[in-house]
Design a protein around this nucleic acid. Structure first.
Lengths: 109, 109
DNA sequence: TTTTCATTTCGTAATTTTGCGAAATATTAA
DNA sequence: TTAATATTTCGCAAAATTACGAAATGAAAA
């Protein structure tokens, strides 16, 4: 009989990252900020996205709490950029998790 | 002024996949079924995981609806396996999405 | 047919997520 | 100081998520 065990931390981390990416608006923001190392303002995003300011603000907060973006005050704006370190962590975590070949049991001789 | 636009379908797809992976139990199941092409029964999982049968059943249903696993009746069991086609889709979707180099703006001469 | 077994579905409850508009905050411009 | 601007926080409501135990399902075994 297999003992009930805590789910390994690396899998829990994947779940946390996946949760941060589980809404189209957040996927959009991460895409925008990660490609081209671009930064942007909340006001840029609210013009592009089909949600209001306060909802957007909550998505930004969530991404901040997940450590994936960071905001820098550039009054009267807040400039949001990707958090490179944690974005790299997310990348390698997904790489490790997903890069399990479907046919790895096939052994070539 | 940038027009408000629907979020592109590829990003919405990432969000859907991420949502399927946004819970540790589901991450665990997908890991188990994707590596080694293993299949397993609900009963195997319930012994390993820190949740009850009915909660597990709901996670399996969610993964089925996301198209990531499939169940085959092998009475009195149900054998769950990865859905290779859609798992491959998930892999390439994340690959496209994530494989945006942080330093792609650096141009080597 | 009745019992047994693995699993799902149902009913319910607690919590989280998502979104909105209004109000608050904080900084710059007048 | 007052007004304007960008953004967040608050209060709220609707919907989704998560989990449980009990009951239902469906197939095999007795």
């Amino acid at each position: 009989m297999v003992k009930k065990v805590e789910i390994p931390e690396d899998l829990q981390e994947i779940a946390r990252f996946a949760k941060a990416m589980s809404h189209p608006v957040r996927v959009y923001i991460l895409k925008k900020l990660s490609s081209r190392n671009a930064c942007c303002y909340s006001g840029d995003l609210v013009d592009e996205l089909p949600i209001g300011r306060s909802a957007l603000s909550q998505h930004l907060k969530e991404l901040k709490h997940a450590g994936l973006i960071q905001g820098e005050i550039e009054a009267p704006f807040i400039k949001y950029c990707i958090n490179k370190e944690n974005w790299a962590k997310l990348n390698s975590a997904f790489n490790d998790y997903l890069n399990v070949k479907l046919n790895e049991t096939k052994i070539e001789i």
